[in-house]
Every structure is written in C-alpha cells, then in structure tokens.
Amino acid sequence: MVHLIEQEFGTFKGEPVKKFTWKSKSGFSVSVISYGAIVQAIEVPDKHGEINDVVLGFDDINGYVNRNTPYLGATVGRCANRIGGASFQIDGATYELAKNVGIDHLHGGIVGFDKVNWKSVVDGNQVIFSYLSKDGEEGYPGDLVTSVIYEVKDDTLYVEFVATTTKKTVVNLTNHSYFNLAGHELGAAELYNHVITINADKITETTSESIPTGKLLNVGGTPYDLRVPKRLGDLMATTSYDDNYCVSTHGNEGMNFVSRVEHPPSGRYMELYSNQPGVQLYTSNFLPAPGDAALVGKGGSGYRLHGAFCLETQKYPDAVHHPNFLTTILKPGEVYRHRVSYAFGVVETEKPAVVVA
C-alpha cells in the first residue's frame, strides 16, 4: 500500500510550490515538487534495511531556484540535450533559439521547463503537473501544453510526459535525475562501485562540442559496450560518459528494457524501462572538480565530479538536423507520449556477474 502526502515546499514568484510524497510499507518513498516538475528525493532500503536517499537535490526551494545549474531531478524541455547552432527549420521557416552552451542550445534554453512552477493536481495515486509554454517561448513555435504524470507502485516510479501543440514544433522531454545508489552524498568513490548494463549496440557519434554528426557507431570492442554488466570504476579509469545510447529493442510494442544499475555494497539496484529510442548516460562530468567549491546539496552535502550518474531517456539529440534520426517534430493534432519507469530493489545474490573492462 502506498500513501500520497501533499505539502508546501516554499514559494516561487509569489506562488506556492507543492511537494508530493509517496510512502510505502517497505520504506521506499519518492518526493516530487511542482517547481521544475522535479524529482526531489527517492529513498530506498538497502540489503540490511537501511534507507538512503539515492538522488541528488536540495532541501528547499532556494536551492533549486539559485543553485540548480546541473538540472538535478528536473523535467527538461521543450527539447532535452543539444540543438546544434541553436536554430532549426520547419517548412522553410527558421527558428532561432537561446544560445546557452557556446553557440548551441541546451535543455530548452535559458528559462526552460526546469525553471517554472507547474500547475498540479492529484488524481488517485497520480500527481499530474501541467505547463503551457507559449508560442515563441525560448524561440520555439506553437503553444505547447505539457503534462508530466508521476505515479509510484510496487517500489517503482512511473513517469509519463504528454504534449500537444498548436504549430509544428520540436519536442523531446526527459527527466534529469542524478542517481547514486549508495546514497546521494557518497560521491565518486561509491559511484565507481556501481555495475551498469545498457541495452544498446550503438551510440550516436558526436563532435567535440557534443553535437551529433548523424552517424551511429557500434559499441562492440569499445569502452561504450555496456551490453553485459561492467563496473563503472573500471570503465572510468580512462573514459567518462555523456553519450546517447541507441536502445537495441526500440520499435517493439510497449516498454523496452533500457538499463540496469547495481551497487553491490548496498545491494540496491535500479531497472529502467522506456518507450524512447535513446538514453543519455552521463557521469556528472560538469559537477565541481576536486579542489573547487562543491555544489552544496541536501543535508549540506558537497556534490562533486563523478558523484552520480544520469540515465535520460529521449529521442536522439539534435534530431531536427538529422533526417535519419526519429523525428522530434510534433504536429498539431498529434500527441507526444514518452513513458519511463524506474524500478528499485535489492539484489538477491551478493555479487552480480561483472565483465572486467
């Protein structure tokens, strides 16, 4: 049985920010807030019954408003990831977007979906956040009505993104939670103990500025081959990750297995399923490096380089410029639907099978 609790989480521009928390008898709980439609906390028991919060974040609204440059837990849109040159064309018309990472556009722009307070409503066990992004916002065409639906059942977080538009526009939403299954505050030393599998035999090739070239690269024989479980610490001795993986079984009806991550010392695992063709693996490469001032998060914890991983389900980045990628253009009359689930549990055996990288 899961109980849903509604609370206040401060105010933003004079409006209340709502916090919703699901709690289960197992000790598993999830908290989301209306600002940025953000996942604020996920508490998971380990193999000894000890409960830890496994996502990075902040204790109050001021942290999210003033310090959340890494998009901790955020709903990202209208378009997650990068759009090369911060512009695109639809039907011969050129749309100029905010250049917020060099000459390119990242995660919806300067004031993206992560920086607004969404309307909220409770429907049974679901929390539904909604936001109207008006025609021209951050340069995008069309009024876009977006909903993010959160629900918790059986120690699993279910998320659905839904959007409709009044004009042809670009839509590619994702959740940008940062996970450390040892505990949000335990940093790179424990991130390296995670064992990861991703159901993908290709990645999208990118330039030095992380803009896709349009080519798909086979992962076989490279550090990007995560089709069998591998320890992140072994891989990250030579490689850090900020790459879009092409889900091998996308196209099958329904939800497809995307990834499994285990943390053997605690026994916790997370399994990811989605209907999206891609997933971005990101190993917190832009959090502060050792020696620099840490990003201060929940409980005064200092978040630093490689302190967590992200698995951002999505369509391929910069798809609007690559006809061979599944389109991110949404037309009037169509409904954008992106589903993803995060299942948490404890492994039954002491150690997963690991292939040495």
Rank of each mutant, 00 (worst) to 15 (best):
D154A: 04
F88H: 02
K99Y: 00
G136E: 11
A74G: 03
F161D: 02
T164H: 03
D135S: 11
Q126T: 09
N125W: 05
E151F: 02
T165P: 00
T146D: 10
A163W: 02
G142C: 14
A98I: 09
S120D: 11
V122R: 13
N66H: 11
H107M: 13
D104P: 02
T69Q: 14
F161K: 02
V159H: 00
L97E: 00
S87L: 12
D91S: 08
S87Q: 11
V54P: 01
G92S: 07
I61M: 03
H107T: 09
D104T: 11
Y150H: 11
E137V: 09
Y158C: 03
L72D: 01
Y131P: 02
F58P: 00
H48Y: 12
N68A: 04
Y150A: 07
A93I: 14
P141D: 10
S133Q: 11
T166R: 05
G108H: 01
E151V: 05
Y140I: 13
E96G: 08
A86D: 01
N66R: 14
V55E: 02
A93L: 13
R67Q: 09
I103Y: 01
G124R: 07
Y131T: 01
G136M: 14
D59F: 06
V76G: 04
K153W: 12
T156N: 05
C79H: 04
A98G: 09
S120V: 05
E160V: 06
V159K: 01
K47H: 06
I51G: 02
V127N: 04
K167P: 00
K167W: 06
G136L: 13
T146Q: 12
I61T: 02
Y140T: 04
Y131H: 10
D53N: 12
I149W: 00
V145Y: 14
K47I: 12
D91G: 04
N62M: 14
W118Y: 02
S133P: 06
